[in-house]
């Protein structure tokens, strides 16, 4: 069986595939914020890739334009909803996010460093995990479901205030073992189709997969407003979808594997601007 799949895949790869260069375009948000959508690959990746590129460069003209203006970007509707809930007290302690964190603008820079090691908890945390920690431990409120609407909206809002700042996740020190796990997952083939993340996003970015323009699979643009489902989508949900598309049993959003993978994939984009909420197909 393995040989058959391999042969099928090989023939698929050797048929002439359409290739399209990512566009030569610059993203300036709201006519004022310069966004870095391509930059030199971070040190840990420089043997493999010269340049890292945002998924924005791989999308069509209209999609790219939609993201350049906060009014045109439908993802900002959900950011606004989260900005409202930021101010609303919830839970037994009668606190809102703003009770401790004040203005949402003051959270600029936070998204850029997540996922990151939390010393007290002794684990790598994603932004949603940290939010839920605040909710349960400090607000006395219920945790939000992973990648569910309130959580993803808040992640988008926290991302929005960091837009333009470079992604900068730590890969050494106590985070290192999670990073190594994530890297291993990235390069491991899974599923009936025996594809790893790298097969598409490292080996084949730029190629057309049917009519879709394969990107480098960077996550600096997450949460993403997808035209396909007209709502915000989270990283773990996307990972789950990709793994499912290789026809494998997939991990759950919030699982240790996906936390590790998110750390690793985020680090592949160190240097690119935080872009979320972005618009993709």
């Amino acid at each position: 069986m393995k040989y058959v799949t391999g042969a099928a895949l090989a023939s698929l790869l050797t048929t002439s595939f359409a290739f399209a260069d990512p566009v030569d375009d610059t993203l300036i948000l709201n006519e004022e914020t310069d966004m870095i959508t391509r930059t030199a690959a971070p040190a840990h990746l420089s043997d493999t890739l010269d340049e890292v590129m945002s998924g924005w460069l791989f999308r069509g003209t209209e999609t790219r334009a939609m993201q350049a203006d906060d009014f045109d970007n439908p993802g900002m509707i959900f950011v606004e909803q989260a900005q409202d809930s930021w101010m609303i007290a919830e839970g037994t302690e009668g606190k809102s996010c703003s009770s401790c964190h004040n203005d949402m603008d003051s959270m600029a820079g936070v998204k850029a460093t997540y996922p990151k090691w939390n010393e007290e908890a002794g684990e790598v945390r994603t932004l949603q995990m940290q939010m839920n920690n605040c909710r349960t431990e400090r607000m006395g409120a219920e945790a939000w479901g992973y990648d569910k609407t309130p959580a993803i909206n808040m992640e988008a809002a926290l991302s929005a205030v960091s837009r333009g700042l470079p992604v900068n996740v730590a890969i050494d020190g106590p985070a290192q073992s999670a990073w190594e796990l994530g890297k291993e997952l990235y390069y491991t083939r899974t599923g009936q189709l025996e594809l790893s993340c790298a097969n598409c996003h490292e080996d084949s970015y730029g190629m057309m997969i049917r009519a879709d323009h394969l990107s480098q699979g960077q996550i600096n643009g997450f949460p993403v407003y997808r035209l396909k489902n007209t709502k915000l989508n989270g990283v773990h949900s996307r990972f789950k979808g990709c793994v499912r598309d290789t026809r494998a049993e997939t991990y759950k959003p919030g699982s240790a594997e996906f936390v590790a993978l998110e750390l690793y994939v985020a680090s592949r984009g160190n240097g690119l601007s935080v872009e979320g909420p972005s618009i993709r197909n």
């Binding site: 598409c200 057309m208 997969i209 049917r210 009519a211 879709d212 394969l214 396909k228 996307r238 979808g241 990709c242 598309d245 197909n281």
Partner: peptide, 8 residues
């Protein structure tokens, strides 16, 4: 109107 590869 196009059909994408993975994830539609």
């Amino acid at each position: 109107v196009t059909i994408g590869g993975c994830g539609g």
